[in-house]
């Protein structure tokens, strides 16, 4: 199953030149060497349904890139292609390329396990393992052998919890199950779990959609802090959140990016009519 996208990739010709019509900066359609990650002609289909139609996007380091758009537009499919989570779906077929530091992650020689340690992910619904708080965070460093001894492991766990802004709340009860925390705490635990393996990039798929406004605010602050150390890609339904958090924004519509660029610019001066309707709240 994991081989299919790779095979089709080897066989597919690499298309040259600009693909998108709605270009803002004139840089689209090719891979910017300054980008941390970049996709080129990324096409994803589930069985016969095409979810992404030749998407190209550059994602820059230490920035928050927000992906917005109506439901079913392909944002989640796109973000799941960046760490090859779509590999787990057997009917999923992927064409095109995704570059991480200039290397194609769909290259047959590329190790998915290694890739996912470099590109972490936080999901829509908090999904702590049914283990203790400590074990949740320690899970990644343990399987990857990142800590030489217990002391170092402890350091990594506490450090990650601190960076996720959770340490103060849980430091006295590291052995209670992760599932006993509140929704917002669970999500921060999941962020700590993701950063414990020291990724370069963190993907967040609507991380606040299951949380109340206060917990959401907490996570948003955290994202802004984390930006200094990580490259962050976030899918969100909330226009305000995208505007508050992101440096760059990409607007997805029916499997394509119809507009992207600096957040402020897209919000203040949308070029595409569909984007304008959406960001100004006329549809969506």
């Amino acid at each position: 199953m994991e081989n299919n996208p790779i095979e089709s990739l080897i066989n597919s010709p690499i298309t040259e030149g600009p693909i998108m019509e709605d270009v803002r900066h004139g840089e689209e359609g090719y891979v910017d060497m300054k980008a941390k990650m970049a996709t080129k002609d990324l096409t994803v289909s589930y069985a016969k349904v095409q979810a992404l139609k030749g998407v190209s996007l550059n994602i820059y380091p230490n920035e928050v890139t927000a992906l917005i758009g109506p439901s079913g537009c392909g944002k989640s499919t796109f973000i799941r292609s960046l760490n090859r989570m779509n590999d787990t779906i057997s009917v999923c077929n992927i064409e095109g390329q995704v570059f991480l530091d200039g290397e194609n992650i769909y290259d047959p020689a590329r190790d998915v396990v290694q890739l996912r340690t470099q590109v972490g992910m936080v999901f829509q619904k908090p999904n702590p393992f049914p283990k203790s708080i400590f074990e949740n965070v320690a899970y990644g460093p343990k399987i990857h052998g990142l800590a030489a001894d217990d002391e170092e492991l402890h350091g990594i766990v506490l450090g990650s919890l601190e960076r996720a802004g959770l340490l103060d709340e849980v430091k006295d009860r590291l052995n209670v199950p992760g599932t006993s925390l509140s929704g917002g705490q669970q999500q921060r635990l999941c962020i700590a779990r993701a950063i414990a393996v020291r990724p370069d990039i963190i993907l967040m798929d609507e991380p606040c959609s299951a949380l109340d406004p206060i917990a959401t605010k907490r996570i948003e602050e955290l994202i802004t802090e984390l930006k200094a150390e990580y490259t962050i890609v976030i899918v969100t339904h909330s226009m305000q959140q995208a505007r508050r958090l992101s440096d760059k924004i990409a607007y997805f519509h029916l499997g394509s990016i119809v507009e992207h660029g600096e957040t402020a610019e897209v919000f203040e001066n949308p070029v595409d009519e569909r984007t304008a309707d959406y960001v100004l709240g006329r549809i969506g």
Partner: peptide, 19 residues
């Protein structure tokens, strides 16, 4: 914050895990 730089599993460790 240099200790935060990406440091994935070693190649040898990955080989063992895939085995």
């Amino acid at each position: 914050m240099t200790e935060l730089a990406f440091k994935g599993p070693s190649a040898e460790q990955l080989r063992r895990r895939h085995l």
